[in-house]
């Protein structure tokens, strides 16, 4: 859901860029502490998310999706670090691959680097509070990932609608429709990656750990 140049008006992309900058700074300030042992993982996590984003999988005839990674980063390294990681991925994609616009970068950061990680983080916490144990952990990861994609897509839809690309309610509905499906892929891939690749428990994200 990388928004290209030309889809957003300045009245939308400028405030989005401002919000993104403020959001990243606030996230870094708010986060108590990133477990020092996890700092070396930042680069590797960004590298993996960049790679995984290249792999589009079909979700319906004529539509594909790919891992977004905001939930994966947030649930392994915390939402503030995830913001930094996702922003790095989006920067390289925009400037070197023209995947996502330069003027739209602020909006893309807002949707995918700030909103998606925080949605995943809070959703995971809420689900595991209701459902403790291994089952709750898996359901929490899956649902948090799914919702992070859906809400990021709806944010993109709002920005497109406010830019006058089409009637807002139609953009919202169609974006929601495809991303409800794409989010299932996000849920499966994030669950697998957290359990078998990163092997980190979301519950012990440093500084925000809860027992």
């Amino acid at each position: 859901m990388h928004i290209p140049d030309g889809f957003l008006t300045a009245q939308v992309y400028l405030p989005a860029a401002g919000l993104s900058a403020a959001g990243l700074a606030w996230g870094l300030k708010r986060t108590e502490k990133l477990d020092e042992k996890r700092i070396p993982l930042l680069g590797a996590m960004g590298a993996f998310i960049f790679a995984a984003q290249m792999v589009n999988f079909p979700v319906a005839p004529g539509v594909s999706g790919h891992l977004l990674g905001g939930a994966l980063a947030a649930l392994s390294l915390g939402p503030a670090a995830a913001g930094v990681i996702m922003t790095a991925v989006l920067l390289i994609q925009a400037f070197f691959m023209h995947d996502g616009g330069i003027t739209a970068l602020g909006a893309n950061v807002l949707n995918m680097a700030i909103l998606a990680p925080w949605v995943a983080y809070f959703t995971y916490q809420a689900v595991t509070r209701v459902l403790p144990g291994r089952f709750g952990n898996t359901i929490g990861i899956f649902f948090a990932s799914w919702l992070s994609v859906l809400l990021a897509a709806l944010a993109a839809a709002l920005e497109l609608g406010w830019s006058g690309m089409f009637a807002l309610n139609v953009i919202l509905t169609t974006m929601a429709l495809w991303h409800i499906l794409i989010g299932i892929g996000e849920g499966i891939l994030t669950t697998l990656a957290l359990n078998y690749l990163v092997q980190l428990k979301p519950a012990d994200i440093a500084g925000e750990a809860k027992e």
């Binding site: 859901m1 990388h2 928004i3 889809f7 790679a51 290249m54 792999v55 589009n56 999988f57 079909p58 979700v59 004529g62 539509v63 594909s64 999706g65 790919h66 897509a153 993109a156 839809a157 690309m165 089409f166 139609v170 953009i171 169609t174 974006m175 495809w178 991303h179 794409i182």
Partner: peptide, 19 residues
């Protein structure tokens, strides 16, 4: 995996085409 990724449009591209 990347060389064999689906070339179908992603969710946003599909919406942009349909609308």
């Amino acid at each position: 995996l990347a060389p064999f990724a689906s070339s179908w449009p992603d969710g946003l591209e599909r919406v942009a085409e349909d609308l």
